[in-house]
């Protein structure tokens, strides 16, 4: 059965890691119904989890009074997800490359690299509290050779 496309939704969820579960399930189901590959689904799942953890931990700093807004569109060509937290924002250009030097042995700091590695487009707003990411259907993402900036 052909999936109804596009799927568009906007949700606001609490600042706790498990709050992503339902939205994540809905997005991945829409991808599956839309004929996205298992690689696409793995990639979007990983990017979603990493982006949400960043929003909750680094953006909203686990403040239960703050929320995360998730807007997504799935159509026959791509999935586009925006995630906005209520934090002060950050400069993604100043995040150290976790693949070099001592950073390689640090337990944290790999989320943004993974998002950039699995999504075709990754953009932040000027304030740095809203992420927009896009993955095109059945197209692998070229691996970036240098630090994600």
């Amino acid at each position: 059965m052909a999936a109804e496309m596009p799927v568009r939704r906007s949700v606001v969820v609490e600042s706790r890691p498990s709050a992503l579960e339902q939205s994540c399930r809905e997005i991945l189901s829409a991808l599956e119904a839309g004929g996205f590959s298992q690689d696409d689904i793995f990639a979007v799942h990983l990017a979603l989890e990493e982006a949400f953890l960043n929003a909750v931990k680094h953006g909203n700093r686990m403040d239960p009074t703050k929320k995360v807004q998730i807007d997504y569109t799935v159509n026959q060509e791509k999935v586009e997800i925006s995630m906005t937290d209520e934090g002060p924002g950050f400069d993604p250009g100043r995040v150290p490359d976790p693949r070099v030097g001592k950073n390689l042995y640090r337990p944290e700091g790999r989320g943004l690299l993974l998002i950039r590695s699995y999504m075709h487009t990754v953009e932040y707003n000027e304030r740095g509290n809203s992420l927009r990411m896009v993955r095109r259907k059945n197209q692998s993402v070229p691996r970036c050779g240098k630090a994600a900036t």
């Binding site: 990983l46 953890l53 042995y105």
Partner: peptide, 16 residues
């Protein structure tokens, strides 16, 4: 079948 970057951090800590 699936893990987040937090698990990578866990492995670094275990390794140390």
């Amino acid at each position: 079948k699936f893990l987040s970057s937090a698990v990578l951090g866990l492995l670094i800590r275990i390794s140390k």
